[in-house]
Design a protein around this nucleic acid. Structure first.
Length: 241
DNA sequence: GCGACAG
DNA sequence: ATCTTGTCGC
């Protein structure tokens, strides 16, 4: 039983997704919030090895850039069938600033999460977790705020250096930044460009890599991300202008 | 000072 | 993120 839910939110004012219940009003404030929340990240995990469900989260923007749709899809982790989904249409809550990306999409994503009827066992985010300049990317932020285990899967790097992984699915190399391993560069399919996997919250890196591979039976990106991507794009198309 | 820079 | 034309390959 797939539940489709659509909501409208007016912007940052009605979203309590951080310590004081509103979006930051400046870069300085956003940085301060990251500093406050970062210690709350659970780096021990190791997280669920056999989650019943896994959620994909993604956001699509209108060409004007003044409107967005955030989607969450919950998949049966074994069959990869969608068992629940929700969308929220709204406004970007913050300017796009690399390193502060989460503040832009978090309100809408949390709004969508609130509308799910199923509480997922794992969040798979389209963006980095610990592979972030201050070790607090979108996946960490989402994990801390929801309390759910989370993984970051980025399509392009934000920080770090790495060696090219082998050409076959499953090959991976460490992603290093500032003398520490912050993620893994993972080949999810034979011969395709690798993705950047990092821990978000309540997960070990090894488990995160395993979960991503389990969610990637056919394409470069996890099925969770693909279903969420289609959903938010459809939501925008359904409400043009 | 000059680039790089998730989505 | 989104725009954008063709091209290569299954």
């Amino acid at each position: 039983m797939t539940m489709k839910l659509l909501s409208q939110h007016s912007g940052p004012a009605d979203n309590n997704f951080m310590i004081n219940g509103r979006s930051p009003g400046s870069v300085a404030e956003a940085l301060r919030i990251q500093d406050e929340l970062r210690p709350l990240v659970d780096l021990v995990g190791p997280g669920p090895t056999a989650p019943a469900t896994a959620a994909g989260l993604d956001v699509a923007y209108a060409e004007s850039g003044d409107r967005l749709a955030a989607a969450v899809t919950v998949l049966d982790a074994t069959t990869l069938a969608v068992v629940d989904e929700a969308v929220s249409v709204g406004r970007p809550a913050f300017a796009y600033v690399p390193g502060l990306f989460a503040f832009r999409e978090l309100p809408a994503l949390l709004d969508a999460l609130d509308r799910l009827t199923v509480r997922p066992d794992l969040l798979v985010c389209d963006g980095h977790g610990l592979a972030h300049p201050r070790r607090f990317g979108l996946a960490c932020h989402l994990g801390v705020v929801t309390g759910l285990p989370s993984i970051g899967v980025g399509k392009t790097p934000l920080v770090g250096q790495w060696d090219e992984p082998g050409p076959r699915r499953g090959a991976s190399t460490p992603l290093r930044d500032g003398g520490e391993v912050v993620g893994r560069v993972l080949r999810t399919r034979d011969g395709v460009k690798p993705v950047f996997v990092s821990v978000g919250h309540r997960m070990s890196l090894d488990n995160a890599v395993d979960r991503v591979l389990a969610l990637t039976p056919r394409y470069r990106l996890p099925e969770t991300t693909r279903t969420a991507d289609r959903l938010c794009r459809a939501a925008l198309a359904a409400r043009p202008r």
